[in-house]
Design a protein around this nucleic acid. Structure first.
Lengths: 201, 201
DNA sequence: ACCTGAACACCGTTCAAGT
DNA sequence: ACCTGAACACCGTTCAAGT
């Protein structure tokens, strides 16, 4: 059977899950596909292009089922939550996404979908994109750290003077991830709500 | 003269600026310092530890002068803006920060400083850390993309159906970076403002 | 058109040995 | 304590040659 782009991406994500981003090498990927590493270069310009396709696949996996009808803020919350889940679904998923400037189908469509949630609610078209991008930055940053924490140590014992402030900082990463994600998302949503009310008045 | 950790970090950042993150290798760094690559491993456990120290140095560079007195929201805006500037100041600065789970002095102190801005204004201590982390995720995500855009192509000509939504997406990355950064930051600040008012009432 | 084999030009990291 | 020299075990990428 001949190698297809889609199969390479599937195998690459499986390899990512098994060995992490540092273990994702073209040689190991070739071995999984039963070809030489060089063969992959006939299908992808370079490793970065492959990583871009992997990121786009991950985003695509979170696209269906279509968002349930509802208020714009319920939809946007679900939208952001799905993006987080999509990145958490694969080892180092957030780092893969952050490391590549993705401009592929699923990613673009996901962006358009977000913009539509807002414009349907009456948000100005020329600012809806700004909101969606900002939201994605939050989601990306959050999940990068969430996945990094697994293999990181604690915040204490760093020879830094212990204060109420420091313990407030170290408590952050020990809090419930879902709850904390929702909290930051809520800050954001409040801002969107205010601007929407302004635009509609 | 003997090698000091601080000198290694300084040289590493200079090399980063000159060649980018992909060009930052232990051998080239050694050459800049006039030592073998292996010598660096006496001072840093591995490359990741060095990258962490580099990230911490960058954060440190944005710490002074102390924030001017003023309202909490003016201070927090300045705080976030400085963080962005700190990452933009060095090539691939945001990617360096994102790639390492930094828990060093300057970074911790910067975090504490952010928390203090909020708690001084009356924000609950156990939520101030959540706010500051969320803010940093936004800043990090924003600057990662900002620095990635330099070497990326356009959003058009990808064989995707051209719609008003798509052009809204592609307009985003063409907008004024400072203005768009401030806009997303503003969404966030509104949420903080609302919760602060709640806490004070 | 699609892949192999083999090479090129590198990497990060380790470690005996030197000073 | 701090660094050299040299090796180990890899990398991403290219490209003539095969089918």
């Amino acid at each position: 059977m001949q190698l297809k782009r889609a199969d390479i991406v599937t195998a690459a994500i499986a390899l990512l899950d098994a060995e992490g981003l540092d273990g994702l090498t073209m040689r190991k990927l070739g071995a999984r596909l039963g070809v030489q590493a060089g063969a992959i270069y006939w299908h992808f310009k370079d490793k970065e292009a492959l990583l871009g396709a992997m990121a786009d696949r991950m985003i695509g996996e979170s696209a269906d089922p279509p968002l349930a009808p509802g208020t714009w803020d319920a939809q946007l919350t679900e939208y952001a939550t799905r993006a987080r889940r999509a990145l958490l679904a694969h080892r180092d998923g957030a780092r893969v996404m952050a490391g590549t400037y993705v401009q592929e189908q699923n990613t673009v469509h996901a962006g358009e979908m977000g913009v539509r949630i807002l414009t349907d609610a009456g948000y100005p078209l020329d600012r809806a994109g700004w909101v969606i991008f900002s939201l994605m930055y939050y989601v990306l940053g959050y999940t990068i750290e969430e996945q990094a924490q697994a293999q990181a140590g604690d915040w204490e014992d760093r020879g830094i003077e212990d204060t109420a402030l420091l313990s407030a900082m170290s408590d952050v990463v020990r809090s419930d991830p879902d709850e904390r994600f929702a909290y930051g998302l809520g800050l954001f949503m409040d801002g969107v709500r205010l601007r929407l009310a302004e635009a509609l008045s």
